[in-house]
Design a protein around this nucleic acid. Sequence first.
DNA 1: TTAAACTTTCAATAAATTTTGAAAGTTTAA
DNA 2: TTAAACTTTCAAAATTTATTGAAAGTTTAA
Lengths: 168, 168
Amino acid sequence: MELEEAKKKFIETWGKLGSEWGINRTMAQVHALLLISPEALTTEEIMKTLSISRGNANMTLRDLIGWGLIEKQHKAGERKEYFHADKDTWNIARQVAKERRKRELDPVLKALDELTKVEGDVNNPEYQTFINSVTDINKLAKNVDKTLDTMLKAEESWFWGSIFKIFK
Amino acid sequence: MELEEAKKKFIETWGKLGSEWGINRTMAQVHALLLISPEALTTEEIMKTLSISRGNANMTLRDLIGWGLIEKQHKAGERKEYFHADKDTWNIARQVAKERRKRELDPVLKALDELTKVEGDVNNPEYQTFINSVTDINKLAKNVDKTLDTMLKAEESWFWGSIFKIFK
DNA sequence: TTAAACTTTCAATAAATTTTGAAAGTTTAA
DNA sequence: TTAAACTTTCAAAATTTATTGAAAGTTTAA
């Protein structure tokens, strides 16, 4: 496989993975494109390479900035904005985990906490089953939250170095 | 909040979480309903409770069985099929992780392995950046895979007991 | 100022995904 | 057998989500 073909395939693969995990396909593709670009790219170049409209490119780039995955760059003497992606894989993973926790896990935890407070007759199987399931799920969610919290604070070397001794 | 309202809210919350993570909303709702039902339910009951069509209920139940999250049950002397969900949270998490790894992570790993093999001129920045990014992502993906593998084999008590000593 | 260069917005449109429901298929009891 | 009870299928419709592109907005240099 030659480089140009490989690039296309990488963008495609990353896009597919994104869409399977609730991230807009185009957003993942733009991210992929910037990940393999040595130089920062303009909106124009991104539009052309991925065959997407100006509006789409603009919104997608804004979202990616919101996710903390890419940054705007200004080049001296130029009016165009350039975009470049953080290439550090560990940062990318952390950033995605951080955003999804904030956007999705936090609201769920809040809702589950509410739901564990429902009162009812302990002899009612309906009530019992409800409380049991919700409480168990709440515990799991809290543990996931705690784990993410620790991971987000961790340094890459610490993470890879120590966790996989345990997961040997 | 009273029980009936809480049930509705739980089904809604679980459905939303599912759709944010690439799982069909209805599928997550049916799962939620079965999670909080003390008794196994028929297709008819599920249809009625969630206001969904027969076809939708049937396909969704089939999918949930495919994900290993629910089971068919036959009651003596009855022709109807009953469905009940595994209520063990750790099993649910494991089952979802297992299926998604098989369906989504495995193909990506295969694709990335291919892409790291691309040959090119090491003095070409395009090539360098490509290879660096792909190689790094491949390493991360392999580590995720390894972690999942260990988690899937682990017992619940082992998991909660030992990992959170490290993640204290 | 002004006008060129560039960015953002958003209603309309397109694409992808999900749902419906009626018809076809299957199983079982008699 | 047969017919009632139940399950499955799938093309069409509905819904949801993503994309377009032209117009409006902003910034900058002169």
